[in-house]
Amino acid sequence: MSEHVHSSSARIYVVVLLALLFLTIVTVGAAYVNFGSSSINLIIAVLIATVKATLVALFFMHLRHDPPVNAIIFVTSLIFLGLFLLFPLIDIGSRDKVVPYGLRMQAQPAAAKAAPAAAPAPSH
């Protein structure tokens, strides 16, 4: 009985390792292919990494058989990491793009006036 469990879970580990190595080859190969935009390449690379990470977490880290609380901790940490990325991304992505109505009128002439004064400084 225990010998059977032994060999079967060892076999699963071998299969998972082979899958991980295969995905590594795929992701390196995908990096040489131009999908039209660098962000598509990035998304593909991150997706493959996520599949690999899920395999490691479920099988090598035994989350499949653990009490669910361990998986909850793991997923919670990822969700909060997502929040940490999300808000600064909103901030950096919308700087100077979303200006309140009242300020918009003043912002334009002020920027135009400031431009010549800033000319000697190296342009941004």
Binding site: T27, A31, I48, A49, A53
Partner: peptide, 13 residues
């Protein structure tokens, strides 16, 4: 696990 993400983000972008 961390290296699985470091590798594509640093080397493959």
């Amino acid at each position: 696990l961390i290296w699985i993400y470091l590798f594509p983000l640093l080397y493959l972008v």
